[in-house]
């Protein structure tokens, strides 16, 4: 099968989605990220790997946090970074995505970090660029957000290294999450034996159990004995539709409180991809509590993005 993410030698060339990544590459990214964690703790927080390369963040949709972490990651690799908020520039004047990209290639950009509201946008760009250009998907519609998925898996592995002996629960809006599906895939690939999803029926994709997960609608039942609680962000706009009654009602049933967390394993960690809706999907006491690893997730996100960029830039044509 032709995998657009890999070159003919099987090296990672673009990062478009976690699905389709062989286990060896998944592990290579996580292991390399491990080496980058220490770089940020040094006197000089930079390594010279991408010296002389230009990384272009093209964001067709706003996401300050994702853009910032990609920018820091590229800069710590010594790359030059260009940030484009395309929504406010040429696209508004009617330029096509490929014209935007080709103009940047003409300026000798080497790598593109792409965020777009439409599924498949990064994939589309990857298919049309010259072989020496690398593309990273920084989120496309509801489809995929591979570096977020990878940083979550990396965080789990750091706190719970024995992945063959873990119970992980994903709680909340699985239906609209662009990471839930790829995380389930990555965790399964790395040997996690038990993955649960906890959500109301209206926020679960149909036939979700086919992904190999156990489905719970009752949070008290679902959290019993889990080692990792991954809260998913509830997008406020979902509240307006018929999917959910109200934020208060949701918090009562699916919001993570200390009391509900007590049902999980005493050493369980709590994760959230941010930005958090305090008091909707997670209580402040839990978000700021001793079991929360929400801020370490952000720190590790930089190491993971450095690893991805370094591996891509090092792949041969």
């Amino acid at each position: 099968m032709n995998n657009p993410q890999l070159n003919q030698d099987g090296q990672l060339k673009h990062l478009l989605s976690i699905e389709g990544l062989p286990k060896a590459i998944l592990k290579q990214i996580l292991d390399t990220a491990e080496s980058f964690v220490g770089v940020a703790e040094r006197e000089v927080k930079k390594v010279p790997l991408l010296r002389g390369k230009t990384v272009c963040n093209i964001f067709f949709e706003n996401s300050t946090r994702t853009r910032t972490t990609f920018e820091i990651a590229a800069k710590r690799l010594s790359a030059d970074v260009l940030n484009l908020n395309v929504g406010t520039s040429s696209q508004a004047k009617g330029e096509s995505i490929l014209d935007t990209v080709n103009n940047l290639i003409a300026m000798h950009a080497d790598m593109f970090v792409v965020r777009h509201s439409q599924s498949g946008a990064a994939h589309f760009i990857a298919q049309h660029v010259a072989p020496h250009i690398h593309v990273i998907n920084a989120g496309d519609g509801r489809h995929s957000h591979p570096t977020q998925g990878l940083l979550d898996v990396f965080t789990i592995r750091r706190y719970k290294p024995d992945m063959h002996n873990l119970r992980v629960a994903l709680v909340g809006d699985v239906l609209h999450s662009r990471v839930a599906r790829s995380e389930i895939h990555a965790l399964t690939t790395l040997g996690v034996p038990e993955i649960r999803v906890i959500a109301p029926k209206t926020l679960l994709p149909v036939q979700v159990e086919k992904l190999g997960v156990q489905v719970y609608h009752d949070m008290h039942e679902g959290l019993k004995g889990v080692d990792v609680v991954m809260m998913l962000r509830l997008q406020n706009e979902r509240m307006n539709g018929a999917l959910l009654p109200s934020a208060q009602e949701y918090f009562k049933t699916y919001g993570l409180t200390q009391e509900k967390l007590a049902l999980a394993h005493p050493d369980a960690i709590v994760m959230h991809p941010g930005p958090m809706n305090r008091g909707v999907e997670i209580d402040s006491a839990v978000a700021d509590g001793s079991q929360s690893v929400i801020l370490p997730q952000v720190t590790y996100g930089i190491a993971v993005r450095m690893a991805v960029m370094a591996i891509l830039a090092g792949s041969t044509i």
Partner: peptide
């Protein structure tokens, strides 16, 4: 690095 890429088995310093 430019010709051989990143060593697959790198360890943290």
């Amino acid at each position: 690095f430019a010709s051989r890429g990143l060593h697959k088995e790198n360890r943290p310093s």
